[in-house]
Write a protein that binds this DNA or RNA. Structure first.
Ligand SMILES: [Mn+2]
Ligand SMILES: [Mn+2]
Ligand SMILES: [Mn+2]
Ligand SMILES: [Mn+2]
Lengths: 223, 223
DNA sequence: CTTTTAATTTAAGCTTACTTAAATTAAAAA
DNA sequence: TTTTTAATTTAAGTAAGCTTAAATTAAAAG
């Protein structure tokens, strides 16, 4: 049976799959802020329901079913975010928190209605891809971490990590939003902090901030 | 702490208060489709949290706190219904079910935003009053059960009971919606079924249907 | 006033989803 | 290869929210 907890486990697993499509139990516990013991417990249950592949001491994989379920959760989450942002006018940094609850409390019927109303968006307010009704993911633009950009490079914000309110609220305040253009003016080797230009304003941001912002580089051809 | 269960208990208690502002444990169990034993259990917990007044073998009352909490739940529920109906375009007979879940998964912040967007509606899609932010209830129009109307009386639908999908879907199909005008053409004493005119169409409805529709009588002065 | 019936409570038990502490296993370092 | 460390599992226990069955109490009927 589907419960709020199980749904959150599946989402977290899906979002943290590595290059081998696996996650460590470890990571799940950390992301959900619960003990490792609780994770072991739940993984056995999810395994019984054919949602994850669980073998003692090994990394976790999703089954076919688990993949579908997880992708549908991500779909629900991101459609809610888009709706809250675009239709209700909830700011960028508050939609994630609300969607984290709403995703468990809405029928597929409702999600489909909302999606239709939004005219089938491909990306959520943070630039993350929204799985379509058939659960296929739209292709994402190639992007690099802002922290990896070089001096004088220019780019466009195409995605930001959405898991920390304070981070989102802060970058919002310095003018960083989806599609915002920026330029790297200086990089201090000492702490890897950066001086960037957003619009016509200068800001100094830490490496940790820059690590969570993803940029599509604008090269000369694009100017 | 507030959980989905507790919130549903409070809503059910509030909606079923009698003239003395009391409910029997009995009624709660029935409305929530759970055992009486479970209700006793939960009432003790709610009492410890100063939400209900519980004394062995006596009817249940709400405390001041309980009243406020319950009214806020009703507010959330009805604002969601209105939003789903008006903004998302979900039909009359499906909004209740969705709102029953969403009411537990939305912050007051979000509810207030939605209310604002709807321009502070006073009644939900079923004609039930929506508590305002200060939890005051708007005054309702005087109304009578359709089943109590007399032959040749005319009226306007001002409220319908919203707890049964099939009922709502059916009356929707025969043209009964909020503010619809109708006239009683015949009443069969045998089973109290009625012949009514809705718009320009005739329908025969059972007493049970007519019991759940509330009408503002239109007397000659109003024609 | 006594009996019957209906409502309510108690008792015992279950599942879900957690916790902490201790034990085990696997992986990394020496 | 052995040792150390880190990840994982097991064990025991808790709280929430249910269940059924049995016991108790209050209210209604006689
Ligand atoms: Mn969630
Ligand atoms: Mn997002
Ligand atoms: Mn509910
Ligand atoms: Mn309603």
């Amino acid at each position: 049976m589907a419960t709020v907890s199980k749904e959150d486990y599946l989402s977290v697993i899906f979002k943290n799959l590595d290059d081998k499509n696996e996650v460590k139990a470890n990571v799940i516990a950390e992301k959900l802020s619960i003990s490792n013991a609780a994770v072991t417990d739940m993984l056995k249950k999810l395994s019984n329901e054919d949602l994850v592949i669980y073998e003692k001491y090994k990394s976790i994989k999703l089954t076919e079913n688990g993949f579908l379920y997880a992708k549908n959760m991500v779909r629900r989450h991101r459609i809610w975010e888009m709706f809250l942002h675009q239709v209700v006018g909830i700011p960028w940094d508050k939609v994630h928190e609300e969607a984290e609850k709403l995703e468990h409390s809405s029928s597929d019927y409702l999600i489909n209605k909302i999606e239709e109303m939004l005219n089938f968006p491909e990306f959520d307010p943070h630039g993350d891809p929204i799985p379509a009704k058939d659960l296929k993911l739209p292709k994402q633009k190639k992007s690099v971490k802002l922290s990896l950009m070089k001096i004088n490079q220019k780019g466009r914000v195409v995605r930001v990590n959405d898991f920390d309110n304070e981070f989102l609220s802060y970058i919002s305040k310095i003018g960083i939003e989806l599609n915002a253009k920026l330029k790297v003016k200086e990089i201090r080797e000492f702490d890897k902090s950066m001086h960037i230009l957003v619009g016509n304003k200068d800001w100094n941001i830490s490496q940790k901030i820059a690590d969570n912002i993803f940029i599509e580089i604008i090269d000369k051809g694009n100017l």
